[in-house]
Design a protein around this nucleic acid. Structure first.
Lengths: 192, 192
DNA sequence: GTCTATAACATGATAGAC
DNA sequence: GTCTATCATGTTATAGAC
């Protein structure tokens, strides 16, 4: 079955994205899969190859899913709202992409950073670059894209911090409310 | 000498912050220190204890350094400028705090997340919570604090991504220019 | 495609000399 | 305060049977 390979990719991606490369052993992956560690080597020649395949698998899935929803038909402001919602929803449904992205940003060497730039960003980057040019002509578009990414990534991860902080709200932060908050801040700033 | 202990804390913090807990071995730390692995156990009883001590060491240093610069004498808008600059400069000079924070946010269990909330945020959180109330009365202050943190953390890490992306600027992004960008966006939004 | 068995090495931790 | 030596275990990876 070619199905085992995909299940292996999914399992490995789950574990690598939350525990990191060094934090996951082949035995652990095999145990979760319900097979022995040696069996993995029938599908991938090394831990490194499995990691790269799993990361590529997740990145392609996520960039495809998001870029599908990036229609260019609306006005710039409407397009921003749609893009923010689409990114939040896709990265909420599958947290693996954002976690691998953030982790590689922390510890990745030059080569992996370059791979991230090529694989992860090309799908979003051009539509966003175009959009920033319409929303704020003459500005540094790359800085604005990094700002938007920072808002989205950090809000999604920081939610688990919220209940432990002073002045915590009682209710959970929903994705639609996050989308509203980020859109407003990005468009009009804190005083909006 | 009590100096060895501090040098050990610094070395371990450097390595843990960039490679993560599982990515660093006691032998590697010892090799960088120029001693043998067994000697570490004279200072700390386990790898876990060393990690916790190193993280606490870095967090106390950073929160002290930043909270010193958070004067409450200026107008809200001026205070925002000063806080953003202070955080960017402190976290640029010593990247360990922000890296450990981001990593623990990714893979920390409930207990470590609670410890982060208590140790890392209390120093910034109250002054920022106060500030947000003045800048945007009636808004969700916690969401705004998370937004500001996301902007600062992500911009600092994303710089290494910039040269690999399309439309890259020739010059490097400086801390003052980052401070201006973040302040403007946070105050007035993208159209400022 | 998965198993058992094993090789070759790395890891956290301890004992005891100096 | 650091060393050498060692233990028990965990690690990636391979060989070969089924």
């Amino acid at each position: 079955m070619e199905q085992t390979r995909e299940r292996l990719l999914n399992t490995a991606a789950d574990m690598f994205s939350t525990q990191g490369y060094a934090g996951v052993s082949m035995r652990e992956i095999a145990r979760v899969m319900g097979i022995t560690q040696a069996a993995i080597y029938h599908h991938f020649p090394s831990k490194d190859a499995l990691y790269i395949a799993a990361v590529t698998f997740v990145f392609e899935k996520q960039t495809l899913e998001i870029s599908e929803q990036m229609s260019a038909i609306d006005s710039p402001a409407e397009r921003l709202v749609l893009m923010i919602s689409a990114m939040l929803e896709a990265m909420e449904e599958d947290p693996r992409f954002r976690r691998i992205y953030l982790r590689e940003l922390l510890e990745g060497d030059e080569q992996k950073i370059a791979a991230i730039a090529e694989n992860a960003f090309t799908a979003f980057y051009e539509p966003l670059y175009q959009l920033m040019g319409e929303l704020a002509p003459g500005s540094d578009r790359q800085l604005h894209i990094f700002s938007l990414a920072g808002l989205i990534f950090h809000h999604l991860e920081a939610r688990k911090l919220a209940p432990h902080l002073p002045h915590a709200n009682e209710g959970k932060t929903t994705i639609p409310s996050l989308a509203r908050h980020i859109t407003n801040l990005f468009m009009y700033g804190v005083s909006s």
